[in-house]
Write a protein that binds this DNA or RNA. Structure first.
Lengths: 235, 235
DNA sequence: AAAATCAACTTGTATATACAAGTAGAATGT
DNA sequence: ACATTCTACTTGTATATACAAGTTGATTTT
């Protein structure tokens, strides 16, 4: 894999330390100066890594005191820029591909406007069931424009981070996106897949993710059963 | 009001330009170098302002091209660090205080853990109905620890940004927070307040917001009718 | 013993500079 | 007319430096 920028390497290291329990809620991270010395980088680089952690809710910075580790949310931290696999420890979350990736036309009445290029190229479509502690938690339908992604349909996606796959094989990085939340009653199919009891509402989350490739976005639609676990995130 | 840092002034100016339509979706903002020259600041300062805009979904930065303005979501951008009043134009959103601020004990089974200091001091509690284009959209119940907020209960909160009030009168800035989303069926009271038809689920959003004051967080619980407008945000 | 002050840390804000990597349009070559 | 190359922009990454503002604990003063 290609070289990551130093601020990102530090960010991932600290993030892993937090999710692995090296630092726990209430702990104070090493100071910015200490992180400089230990990692051989300068303060703006350290601060950029810490800013990412703060943006995602892992830490809270306090002027004069330090960077305090927050409690990692028990729910699925789905609002961060990272995908779900890295938001919780991968031992809690597993993925089952229900509909394998296939190339098809975009569905009618797609919730996001599509460019002409996207429309013409069709999309790679697949459905995944995500389980937390073995229980179905959300159902994820993904649409990726079928543009310059050779042999994507042959990649295995069970228990694999889609974002990692996109990064490693296609040099695609998620840069941001937007998302819409709605509370809905589930369709029969979703009710079956998520094992939802009658009259239990679910959250429908529609996301458009932008990437480092210009004019290349992809889309996902998730249905989440929030009866046991809330959807959560920091900001 | 006290002096804002330069990066924040630029951020608010650009944000206002975007929400006011000076820049529209698809437009490219002036380059970083141009913003430096025009505003008499340096590139890291400009980049910090642009980073905030990018984090909140207002723009997408593209290396080599520029900063492209995104469409402002039609829904209520409630996931950003700013309060709801500044997420949409204030002409679309109005606020009606249903239960005026009063000091009381924390409710039982509060969804976030509370410190001993918070428990002892009680909380300032109030309820507001938020309307978009005159239609009830969400119901906001707020709990603020009753610590060092003299005469808070005398402040008017109708059609006023709570965050602005906290900033101007008490020097409290929102630094971040966490939030949990659930899909629920509304209680009778919420159904009445939000004019929700039968069997229509809603989103329950519980938020804990951290501030610049150490160990001072406040909390809100929102119920949103997402039938017409989705809850949306950028990231 | 309590209050005030001080020192040494912390993060926050900002400037200055340099080079890498990506994009678009102009210029040149075939 | 089309392809290739070049130029001049853009944002991305990173170092270096300085001072402001906040926090904590030690020290000094009362």
């Amino acid at each position: 894999m290609e070289q990551l920028p130093q601020y990102r390497k530090l960010y991932e290291q600290l993030r892993k330390h937090i999710t692995n329990g090296v630092y726990r809620k209430g702990d104070i991270l090493p100071s910015e100066n200490e992180l400089c010395n230990v990692n051989g980088v300068t303060r703006p680089t350290v601060r950029k890594a810490l800013d990412l952690l703060a943006n995602e809710g892992f830490i809270t910075k306090h002027q004069g005191l330090g960077s305090v580790v927050n409690k990692i949310p028990k729910g699925i931290g789905i609002l961060s820029i990272k995908g779900t696999t890295s938001a919780v420890g991968s031992e809690n979350l597993s993925t089952k591909v229900i509909v394998k990736p296939k190339v098809m036309q975009w569905p009618e009445n797609f919730p996001f406007p599509l460019t002409e290029t996207e429309l013409e190229s069709g999309c790679i479509y697949f459905e995944r069931l995500r389980l937390v502690d073995g229980e179905p938690f959300f159902y994820d339908i993904t649409y990726i424009p079928n543009i310059n992604l050779p042999r994507f349909t042959s990649y295995k996606l069970d228990n694999v981070s889609l974002f990692d796959t996109l990064r490693e094989h296609f040099k695609l990085e998620i840069k941001g996106g937007k998302q819409h939340f709605k509370a809905v009653m589930p369709s029969k199919n979703i009710q079956d897949q998520l094992a939802i009891k009658d009259n239990q509402p679910i959250i429908q989350l529609q996301r458009k993710l932008s990437t480092n490739r210009l004019n290349f976005n992809f889309y996902s639609e998730l249905f989440c059963n929030t009866e046991v676990y809330a959807l959560s995130g920091g900001f």
